[in-house]
């Protein structure tokens, strides 16, 4: 790995560890290997959003050309968000692509991702199904995102109605994640979700 990339990650790592956001438990970074190429990030769901109370784990890969090229970041924790793939966790955020600037750091990237959770951009979607729901039925989107947060990110808001619908599909022999995806995609209409799962 290029020397400058490792040196920078070392310094940034110190910066994040000392930052006030860590003190407030808003962001967290851990090293996954000794040569500073793979890290694990963690952000707290911002307050007053469906992600509140959840902890979202991120995979951060630092390229050899860092900081001249952006780090590769994706969500490991499954999340329902217009700009994040509900399947792969891939993120659609300009600063992780062409708007990257060399002075940005792990800390600013994590804070930007946290900001993305509070302000979705449904017109520039990564997940078309989620974005459509966001634009057509915001309430349904918030309910779904809150339920995903409770299932995968340890969020406190369990929706018993959603849970019972998932349970009904699981009882039919469907995997619980598949059931959640089908129900989420069809606005929690259990008939259409069943139809889609068994067709």
């Amino acid at each position: 790995m290029a020397n400058i990339a490792a040196q920078r990650i070392k310094r940034e790592f110190k910066e994040v560890v000392k930052s006030e956001e860590v003190a407030k438990c808003a962001i967290k970074v851990e090293l996954l290997n000794d040569n500073y190429t793979e890290l694990k990030g963690e952000i707290a769901g911002p307050p007053d959003t469906p992600y509140e109370g959840g902890n979202f784990v991120l995979e951060i890969r630092v390229p050899e050309t860092y900081p001249f090229n952006p780090p590769k970041v994706r969500f490991i924790t499954k999340i329902w968000h217009p700009n994040i793939s509900s399947v792969t966790g891939a993120i659609c955020l300009d600063i992780l692509k062409d708007q990257w600037a060399a002075a940005m750091t792990l800390r600013t990237v994590l804070l930007s991702l946290q900001a993305l959770l509070s302000a979705a951009e449904p017109d520039d979607p990564q997940d078309a199904v989620v974005a459509r729901q966001y634009k057509e039925n915001l309430e349904m989107f918030q309910l779904t995102a809150r339920h995903w947060t409770s299932m995968y990110a340890g969020g406190p808001n369990v929706n018993t109605d959603c849970d019972s619908k998932i349970k009904r599909l699981v009882d039919m022999g469907v995997d619980d994640h598949q059931a959640l995806v089908a129900l989420s995609s069809y606005n929690w209409d259990i008939e259409r979700a069943t139809e889609q799962l068994f067709s």
Partner: peptide, 10 residues
């Protein structure tokens, strides 16, 4: 740190 390079942070 006010004399640190904004890219390499050195």
């Amino acid at each position: 740190s006010i004399f640190e390079c904004n890219i390499c942070l050195d």
